[in-house]
Design a protein around this nucleic acid. Structure first.
Lengths: 250, 250
DNA sequence: CGTGTGGTTGAACAATGTCAAGCTCTGTGG
DNA sequence: CCACAGAGCTTGACATTGTTCAACCACACG
């Protein structure tokens, strides 16, 4: 597993953070922004395939994804893996571990990722000095919870084809809101990732994706899934879509 | 669906809150306690089977469970139901809705429940005046997230018998920490609840529970599941157990 | 050119769902 | 006190879904 990682002080200033201009995210007050600038200690670059957090670790840092795709997962003793959720630009990762101690899941990069680095030890300062940002952190945690609720509904009660349709519609909608596609509409995952997210075997996943392809909703490409009809995917899954308002990030 | 609910100002004072003496929960500072006393607007009693929150609602309140059992769930259009998690004394419910707007899941009482009532509108005051309690709210949300992670692993990757063993061990461990059993060790759920939590049909759930009973790990009783060997249940599921330290509540 | 990763396929098999019936309580109304 | 209805549990036969195994293919990369 390649896991080269480069830390460097050189950095995008928070004032010029490319995420700020996305309509998905809320605006900052001036003092919030200056606090975050000080809170940010640098940037980290990791390769595709690298592990950012490993289950069981106690990390001194937490990160916000600046660019790239990744995923969180847990495994059983015998190696069975469950992907819990995907991470994309604007997502804060490592909060669970920062607040409660040890990490109980791992996080891996799906593409090269750049991260803003924050220090866990300074989290309490944030709570003390910026109540609005503290509220945002709870918001971020509540949002993740809400997404996990939907995933649970999906894995527990949707059929294989519905699950697959939901997953792709979900990833597409999130990534679209972040302008992550340059017209390509290709989600950079393998069928193994899809299988491990849906709780299915790769073989069955392959056959299921083929059905979606036959219906003209997706096409499978070199290293990824091309979304052809996001609307119909959501319909197949009986999924209402993500919250539409703008959300906080840090 | 019976949904009688009685609100009354009469209340257990927070100073004498029975939950405070449980080792599962952390101690409060004096000023935290006095703030919470003011934050609490009264108590609510609901019958078994009553709906506390309904998906789609905008509630002006959030609650902490004082006594009783309940569960959170989501449904698909055609009626398929997925139970997301169970709620027990000390659990804060409605935080997701309070922070992000509309409820996206429903909550139902499994037994008669008493609740402490808080006003959503005063949440921001908490963030402004009590950073330590704000931190606790994030903690509470992060804890729920962690539990959902484990549930996702369970439904996605564990076999029927492992899932059932995990669920019962999980409920048993939580309830034990809250001294919810008076020596009975009986979890008050039906097999339909188990099925809807595990993502299985009732019939298959029945057969699976029978296997656990044959192994001497549980016994099914009038309206509930008697836990005979919590240790072995956790082993069957390859589950490490809940976090052991004391946690915050409000 | 090999080699590895990811995708595709078919066949045999295992896990789980569906249908249908019956059973045992418990509570209710006559 | 009895009859009945409903909820929850149990069981067997059968259908469907999903898994495992074992190939084989295609392409990218060294």
């Amino acid at each position: 597993m390649a896991s080269a990682a480069a830390m460097h002080g050189q950095r995008t200033s928070c004032q010029e953070c490319p995420l700020r201009s996305l309509p998905s995210f809320r605006e900052f007050e001036r003092d919030e922004l200056s606090f975050i600038s000080r809170f940010k200690k640098g940037e980290l670059l990791v390769d595709a395939g690298a592990t950012i957090f490993l289950e069981g670790a106690h990390s001194a840092h937490l990160f916000t994804i600046l660019s790239g795709w990744g995923f969180r997962y847990k495994t059983l003793e015998d190696g069975r893996r469950q992907i819990l959720n995907y991470v994309m630009p604007g997502d804060l990762i490592g909060l669970q571990g920062s607040i409660m101690g040890e990490m109980q899941h791992s996080t891996e990069a799906l593409s090269p990722i750049s991260l803003c680095v924050f220090e866990r030890a300074e989290l309490m300062t944030l709570y003390n000095s910026h109540p609005s940002l503290a509220f945002d952190l709870t918001w971020i945690a509540a949002r993740e919870e809400r997404i996990l609720d939907e995933h649970l509904l999906s894995i527990g009660r949707r059929s294989a084809i519905e699950r697959a349709a939901y997953l792709i519609a979900y990833l597409y909608q999130r990534a679209s809101g972040l302008h992550l596609f340059n017209g390509s509409k290709v989600i950079p995952i393998t069928q193994q990732h899809v299988a491990d997210t849906l709780g299915l075997s790769v073989v069955h996943t392959n056959k299921t994706l083929k059905k979606l392809a036959e219906r003209g909703l997706i096409a499978w490409q070199e290293r990824g899934c091309k979304v052809l009809d996001a609307q119909k995917l959501a319909e197949v899954a009986d999924w209402g879509g993500l919250d539409s308002g703008s959300r906080p990030f840090i």
